[in-house]
Amino acid sequence: MARILTGIQSSGRPHLGNILGAIKPAIDLSLLPGNDSFLFIADLHSLTSLRDGNTRRDYVRAIASTWLAFGLDTSRTTFWRQSRVPEHTELAWYLNCFTPVPMLENATSFKDKSEKLTAEAGSNAASAINAGLFTYPVLQAADILLYDAEVIPVGKDQRQHIEMTRDIAGALNRSVGADILVLPEARIDERLMVIPGIDGKKMSKSYNNYIDIFLPENELYKVIKKIKSDSTALEDPKNPDTDITFQLYSLLASDEQIREMRGLYEAGGFGYGSAKKAFYELIVQKYATERERFTFYMTNNDELERELRTGEEKARAVASQTIARVREKLGFN
């Protein structure tokens, strides 16, 4: 059917929003007959904001362990660390030389992040924005084009990056007079869930409002108890549709469980504390196997490395073919 590529940054441990919005859908897509899935950990991208090497290694291990815990079949997919395939950075340099500066200046993500960094830096604003952040879309384009990816599942906020990838690839193709790079198509799932965080905003590491389902049970419960709720008295009926705990519970629960929980809310005499406890218990029960697998991979680094290195060999086999085509046309062979 298609060659599909998905990447996830190593800027933190995966949270419930990442799992429901990206990881699970990507794994489901990889299992469809005929799909050829390439799934990678974008650890090079994280260097624009994360400088500590030990922290990055921990995050990479946690991300890899999460994919494997949720059933990623590495015999059917190519799964690797971006930094272990040097062709990513080689192609990024070639693409840089075909990328107009105004295109990068107009990137919405760059403008948003640079404005935020400048505001936070105050008197050090001039040095707050690094060149890696500016050329981020070019490395992202290299990630995609290196594997002849045809379909890129993304959220609406990433549509521009795919358009930029197509523009950059098209410029190089026209320059060499041959279609040596495949122009990818964005797949925007309009039904993609926006997962609320514990404060009601979109769940994000940036907002520090996320739920890490792999935390030890007592730590996980502490996070769940911080979910924002209103001041409706215990004995009064409550509106489940405006409550964050109910919204999160509904994402994981069965239809029957949702009906029962809605009835408890609307009947009164049921407090938000009880709802949070039920949500916590649901996470622990629903993801018992995944939590066990995650712990296995996090504590068995040799097994985790074996899975990643196998994928990195497969990734390099494909990447080297693309680089060979580009080098030949650009006169580097």
Rank of each mutant, 00 (worst) to 15 (best):
D43Y: 02
G21W: 13
A64R: 04
I19W: 07
L47V: 03
K24P: 09
V85S: 00
P25T: 14
F70M: 01
P100I: 06
F70C: 02
G34A: 08
L72H: 07
L31N: 08
P25R: 06
T48P: 00
S30D: 03
I41G: 00
I23W: 00
R84E: 15
T89L: 14
L44S: 02
L20R: 09
V85L: 07
P33T: 11
G71F: 09
R84Q: 12
G53Q: 11
H88K: 01
T74I: 10
T78K: 07
W80D: 00
L29Q: 12
S49R: 11
F98V: 09
S46T: 03
L32T: 07
R84T: 08
D43W: 05
T74Y: 03
L50K: 08
A69C: 05
I41P: 00
S30K: 03
H45E: 02
Q82E: 06
E90T: 11
N54K: 08
A42D: 02
D73K: 08
T48F: 00
F38M: 10
G34Y: 14
F98H: 15
L95F: 03
Y94R: 00
I19Q: 04
A42Y: 00
L72V: 09
F38S: 01
W67G: 04
T77W: 07
A22L: 14
P33V: 04
A42W: 00
S75Y: 10
S30C: 12
W67L: 09
N96R: 05
G71N: 04
L91K: 08
S30Y: 06
A62T: 08
S49I: 08
G71I: 11
N35P: 04
F98S: 04
F79V: 06
V101H: 12
A22N: 15
D43R: 00
F98K: 13
L31A: 09
C97D: 03
A69D: 01
L32M: 10
T89Y: 05
